[in-house]
Design a protein around this nucleic acid. Structure first.
Lengths: 344, 344
DNA sequence: TTGTACGCGTTATCAT
DNA sequence: ATGATAACGCGTACAA
């Protein structure tokens, strides 16, 4: 029989027991645990030893009730299985883990009401801070929330006490994508928009128009198709475009999912990509590199987004000024785009 | 100015206040809240009214510390951004929400040690039960865990008190996929395996062999390529296969991601799918229907998996015998497979 | 059926 | 620097 000491995971070993075992008062143990005050080295050693021997694990629940930190942060995402935000969640997890915090995830489903409910639930669980991944809450509610506890929000640009906003440069990304197509000689570039209620979608449209204008190419409203950020909307957009018989040689979709849909629509009609039509997406989802053909797209660093958000929140919690910045958008050229000259 | 009563979200309104306001004792309020005992109707009405007026929300933290239920369940998944398990998480969220529970997610990264850590963290937070999505923990540890609190585990078949296992019929799925190819006239069917440490991977290999055998087709070890369940491993497997100059007319990949990789490998070599080679995947990921060509695959109900797991756990918590069953695998025929006769 | 009193495990406040 | 004591908000024996 192994001599291994079976340490009870959800430890029935209490702080009081540690105090007794090491001959000090509970308060001292608590202070050592939290670094709340200076403690003499010998007592600290004794306590540390007792903690190790007893296998003591602080009870986070009791800790919170007593008014301490919960060492947890709430994350309101939109959909727990979103291909884009999913990797952001992983980024958050990564950095929180290194500092002993745990994330509590809640899904708002792109609905301000639900997002608010998530926040309420999270606060009821006494999270120390909250990260809001984009979403539809008003800036106002966020501002109010930030008065109660530290908040980091992505997908918008705003300033408020106790709040840090992290925004991706959607405008520049879209400009880059469009410019790429333009530099390849394309002039009739269709654009599939995202859901217009998303600020991101609007910014990407702006970027598209700006690139066109800079190149002296006329903006044709008939070439911009409404989309909803999912595959089917991209597919239907292209079908409508094809039916309209508007000539075009390239498509820029406001996200990868719609680009996939667009790609499929062309495939169904026997139109080859990139031989006859070039496609550019936006996001650089995990699957983009393995699509047929591998999709040229704008890399939006989901992982970085999560990491930065978490880091910023940790800073806020430590009363430091967050400085995290998202990397600039990068164009990833793969095989779905080709110069117009070589097209046929 | 609106007369709306601003209810504090993380309510400073306590149970005691409700008791006072309604002229009863705190215990009575508690009993009403938890349905712990029978209470006279008039008192119940009074309390309910007070609760509504004060906007009282029970403090889950205090509730747990006092020995009550936390109304939360732990979910140990493998990667928070997994395309397959992601939708399972959504399924869990869905059903938990309807019964007032909240999920706490933790990622084990396919590593028994980490999974155990997740469980410890979860237990420290006093979850009422735990759902383990597959993973590498030993049956033994799960059995031990189930003695402490209700456990639902997916991806394995086992029985233990306080534990409910939910397994997908991987064998049958693989058999179905292979049989489909066989019925299309294919005889030289390559198989890209998953990571052999996964029981799923082994089962799928078994299914492949069983279908071959049933059809009287010889099993050729040279046609089974090791894969690791991700795109690149599928891609490399096919490259090796091609280089080996082993003749084959179809590929069955043990999951969609590897199928995508395989598809790309063929595309790079100018081999057309399904004209020259047919491909079948496994999982039916969200993107499978929009791949080029749309992927024929085995539908594995991730959403159902999550829902069933959550439902089973709720049953366990209510001391009912869980009866949830996963649906049988279904073959989804799309456009990546074609009869050998019409191939060229 | 209802109320009283205590305990859950920790941190904060106030002494010393 | 350290210790005693009082919360934190709720559940639950136990008593009535």
């Amino acid at each position: 029989m192994k001599r291994s000491k079976t340490v009870h995971p959800a430890g029935k070993v209490t702080l009081d027991m540690v105090a007794q075992a090491s001959g000090v008062s509970p308060s001292t143990v608590s202070r050592i645990l939290n670094g709340t005050a200076v403690v003499s080295q010998d007592k600290k050693d004794a306590v540390d030893r007792a903690i190790a021997e007893l296998g003591f694990v602080p009870n986070p629940i009791a800790r919170v009730l007593a008014g301490g930190r919960s060492l947890s942060v709430g994350v309101v995402t939109q959909s727990i299985d979103s291909p884009y935000y999913g990797v952001a969640l992983r980024g958050i997890e990564e950095v929180l883990e290194t500092v002993g915090y745990v994330p509590l995830f809640a899904s708002g489903h792109w609905n301000a009401k639900e997002e608010q409910r998530c926040i309420d639930t999270l606060r009821a669980r006494r999270v120390d801070g909250i990260i809001v991944l984009t979403g539809r809450l008003s800036d106002e509610s966020l501002r109010k929330l930030a008065k109660e506890l530290p908040v980091v929000v992505t997908g918008r640009t705003m300033k408020a006490p106790g709040l840090y906003a992290l925004n991706f440069n959607d405008f520049e990304g879209a400009r880059l994508a469009t410019h790429h197509l333009l530099s390849l000689g394309h002039r009739q570039i269709a654009f599939i928009t995202g859901d217009p209620v998303h600020p991101d979608a609007q910014e990407r449209l702006r970027g598209y128009r700006a690139a066109l204008e800079a190149a002296g190419v006329r903006y044709q409203p008939d070439l911009v198709l409404p989309g909803l950020f999912h595959e089917d909307s991209g597919l239907m957009a292209v079908e409508r475009l094809l039916d309209s018989r508007q000539p075009f040689t390239a498509i820029f979709a406001a996200n990868d999912q719609m680009a996939f849909g667009a790609n499929l629509a062309l495939h169904r009609r026997g139109i080859r990509v990139p031989d006859e039509v070039s496609i550019v997406g936006f996001d650089d989802l995990a699957g983009a590199g393995h699509a047929i053909p591998p999709l040229t797209t704008i890399h939006q660093a989901g992982l970085e987004l999560g990491r930065c958000a978490a880091q910023a929140l940790m800073d806020l919690l430590a009363d430091k000024k967050p400085t995290a910045q998202l990397p600039e958008p990068r164009l990833i050229i793969r095989s779905s785009t080709r110069s117009l000259a070589s097209a046929r």
